[in-house]
Design a protein around this nucleic acid. Structure first.
Length: 417
RNA sequence: GCGGUCGUGGUGAAGUGGUUAACACACUGGAUUGUGGCUCCAGCAUGCGUGGGUUCGAUCCCCACCGAUCGCCCCA
């Protein structure tokens, strides 16, 4: 217990931080080119923020949040996602004053109490983007392309982009009725889950894995056929932008986002080899959220990607960078006096910008040479009593196995060559 | 939250109801005096996720818990 991290959490060990940095660096440079600025919001917020923002009745809010009372008796929740926080920060800090369109991105830990699986952690990391203040579908296209370019830029192949429009509250209530009319006389044939969905959220019936192959499913009305003029035009223009830019995409009329705040555009990027957790990125438009949270009606779009899943995909395709931290010089010290001198020498070499290493265990020369070899050292600098007396060091080129005496004060220059 | 599979040293992995738990890699030391990468030798789990139970006896059987993993669900 004491020596186990809580379920669903994971240490990112030294041999993998490099992978994370690699991905994070790609993200930062891409966002910079697209004009998105980084924001860092608190890891926890008032519980109400998520209840309002994400919506009661959603699985995330109802059964996946880490919620607790703090010592001041406030109800606090570890953020399960970052959109609500970003919008809160946008309103609180009046970022709308700076620009008509506010473009933000974030990278950080999110928390959801879920059953852990590969690619699904209780503490997990998301990179996400929010563009607040513009209704133009070009912005939807921009963020979709940003997501695709990130993933493709990392070298991932076989990505699948699905888009849909979930309409606005107006089209949705119409669609809901049409669905209920359609399913009403088929209820007996539906699974138990679906029957309970009938009243609550008939749209989910389409998503059912058990009933989805029923013959009449394909005949069920599609949301895309019920969109109001505004939503339908928005959806068409989005597709034009995407087509123009050359991304391949499929329309998936069943694609529904699980969080309440989505309107119009919904999209998802899948990497199928990941199995059950193949959704690598997902997002959409949430034109109602800002008003819902007390701001002026403001349109917005965003998405998030799960970094664990991205890393998993990269690993599967062998796209992770080679990790090496080769040492320039390994200082081999023989005897106590030499050890003291070697310590000083190593510090000087490091000051000069070199990666220098020594043994502190007072081991045999042979052991030290082995170590130098294992660390892939370019040079070994050997110091014993003789060298000490002459103010010199035996500099051995590890690859070529040649060595020569070099004055200590000329060592840095010699190595730099 | 539901169902399935799994849990042996630092790592990968064999194995059995009964005195010494294979093997490989890694690690440590050694193969003449101050020199690595190859080779050879030696050392390295009083312990088989944790806690109960069955048994004369369990790492191997049963139960619970913990953890991993796959699917469902949900989602990133």
């Amino acid at each position: 217990m004491l020596t186990n991290a809580p379920r669903g959490t994971k240490d990112i060990l030294p041999d993998t931080v490099g992978d994370w940095l690699y991905v994070e660096n790609k993200i930062r440079s891409l966002c910079q080119r697209f004009g998105y600025q980084e924001i860092r919001t608190p890891m926890f917020e008032h519980t109400e923020l998520f209840q309002r923002g994400i919506g009661e009745g959603t699985d995330v809010v109802d059964k996946e949040m880490y919620t607790f009372q703090d010592r001041g008796d406030r109800s606090i929740t570890l953020r399960p996602e970052n959109t609500a926080s970003a919008v809160r920060a946008y309103l609180q800090n009046k970022l709308y004053g700076d620009n008509a369109l506010t473009k933000l991105f974030y990278i950080g830990s999110m928390f959801r109490y879920d059953r852990p699986q590969a690619g699904r952690m209780r503490e997990f990391h998301q990179f996400g983007v929010e563009a607040i203040g513009e209704i133009n579908p070009a912005v939807d296209a921009e963020i979709i392309l940003l997501a695709m370019k990130l993933l493709e830029g990392l070298g991932l192949k076989d990505l699948e982009l699905y888009i849909n429009s979930v309409g606005c509250p107006k089209c949705r209530s119409k669609y809901r009725e049409m669905l209920q009319d359609f399913f009403r006389d088929k209820l007996d044939d539906l699974c138990e889950d679906c029957r309970s969905r009938f009243e609550r959220s008939p749209m989910r019936i389409l998503d059912c894995k058990r009933d989805s192959d029923k013959p009449y499913m394909a005949e069920a009305p599609r949301i895309t056929d019920c969109l109001c003029d505004e939503c339908s035009e928005h959806f068409n223009r989005l597709q034009k932008y995407l087509t123009k830019s050359g991304v391949r995409f499929s329309i998936d009329p069943r694609l529904v986002r699980g969080l309440d705040y989505y309107t119009k555009t919904a999209f998802e990027i899948k990497y199928p080899p990941l199995g059950a957790q193949s959704a690598v990125a997902g997002g959409g438009r949430y034109d109602g959220l800002i008003e819902e949270m007390g701001g002026n009606p403001t349109p917005a779009v965003g998405f998030a990607t799960g970094l664990e899943r991205v890393l998993l995909a990269l690993e599967k395709q062998g796209l992770l960078p080679d990790k090496k931290n080769d040492v320039d010089v390994y200082v081999v010290a023989l005897g106590e006096r030499a050890q003291e001198e070697a310590f000083k020498l190593v510090m000087d070499l490091r000051d000069a910008g070199l990666n220098a290493a020594v043994d502190y265990a007072g081991r045999s020369m042979k052991a030290q040479m082995k170590q130098a070899n294992k660390l892939n050292a370019r040079y070994a600098a050997i110091m014993g009593d003789d060298e000490l007396a002459d103010g010199v060091v035996v500099l051995r080129d590890m690859a070529g196995s040649e060595q020569e005496k070099v004055a200590v004060n000329e060592l840095v220059d010699k190595i730099r060559l």
